[in-house]
Design a protein around this nucleic acid. Sequence first.
RNA 1: GACCCUAUCGUCUAGCGGUUAGGACACUGCCCUUUCACGGCAGCGGCUCGGGUUCGAUUCCCGAUAGGGUCGCCA
Length: 448
Amino acid sequence: MKPRVRFAPSPTGFLHIGGARTALFNWLYARHTGGTFILRIEDTDAARNTQAAVEVILNGLRWLGLDWDEGPLTADATGPGKGERGPYFQSQRGENYKQRVEALLAHGLAYEHEGAVKFKMAREPVVIPDLVVGDVRRELTDREAADPDFVIVRSDGQPVFHLTNVVDDLEMGITHVIRGEDHLSNTAKHIALFRAFGVEPPRYAHIPLILNGDGTKMSKRDQGASLATYMDEGYAPEAVVNYLCLLGWSPKQNREKLPIGEVIERFDLPQILRHNARFDLEKLHWLNYEYLRELPDDRFHELCVHALARAGVDTNAYPVDYVKAALDTCKGKIKLFAELPDYAGFFFREEFTYDTGAAQRDFTAENQPRLLKLRDAFARLTAFDADTIGNTLKAVAQELGVKVGVLVHPTRLACCGTTAGPSLYHLIAVLGRERVLQRLDRALARMG
RNA sequence: GACCCUAUCGUCUAGCGGUUAGGACACUGCCCUUUCACGGCAGCGGCUCGGGUUCGAUUCCCGAUAGGGUCGCCA
């Protein structure tokens, strides 16, 4: 029988990076085994579950490239879905839960208590067979020893997570439950529920959690906990996926960056690590850069424009060809799109301040006549391409008897205001002679 | 408090009784160079602690410690 796995998030308006990895591991397992990846929305909490919140999940998974074989087609709970075991929204499956609870009641496996329904839990340890951790024998906690029974239907008639989760897994034919380790303790309840329904529980694989860089639990509020951050800031989804694969799983053979197809080939449940992993933003940045430099030009430009717009830099005021030429000088240079406004902002604004330390060092009275000579050489040029500009600068430096760096640094500062940026000769060519001369004049004025 | 999981450089990891404990990110230095970045070279840095088992433990067992998780009419 082909595996059937599911990702079953609750729409809270937020897709946690840990949730994204859980979805990824489920998807990888399905793709590796030729099984089925199901998306089920656990929207039993009507108060906070909105269509917009479902949208966040669907968009996140689509962005990551995790396509589902069964599940909703839209964020509308009453809308269409694909697959034979729907509906895939728990809010639409009330009748299923009701029937299951009645069956439990009829068999004396559950009972009413203060308007709620409680499940009669055995007062003995449960062994949880886990594909990642191994057999886990879970003893009762002191509170459970006092009263092991738990609520499956609230007094307001709403079914509780433990029940809906198990009923759906059962009715959707889930064979492997791959989820965060935070569910491991609860699994005893779930196994008991499956048995009460007269079926053997699915196979379990509890994957370790993702922690903050400092080892604390990564919660909603923590920096980088939301997948939306990476979507908004222009990370390459392939990089995020690749990085997530490396947390709690290893492709071995000293591999780090590898295409998703290869991950699918190599991925399997028993090889998942058992310990939690800390989220290392630096390493994600490195991987992101690795993918960024391979991005097709169109996609790179699109993400650049988006990043600049977010920083309040409007590229629409400039000709399309100019924008493209300007951005081309940044490709292979920036690690993150968030760096772009500082790195290339000078292309899109005429007023900017100079880096203070560099201005003190480079905008000297001594450099003034040198820069002036370069300015005049530029002014006489008939061609204004990168090669010509470079050769001109070198020639002027030679005439002056100074190293090229003596001219390069003040020129860069005059044109960009910064000490780091794209190739100087290329950036000058893109800016165009007129603006370069203006910028040199502006700098010269304060060097006297 | 009870119960459960975990433990290799700062971080992610390879290792599955005998290895100079390997790689990646980060960091440091050098080279390349029009800045930065890339690239190349070199360096720094690790088996949590005690007991066993064994000829021999990073590796197997037990304990401690530490970190994480769970004990809801949240999911």
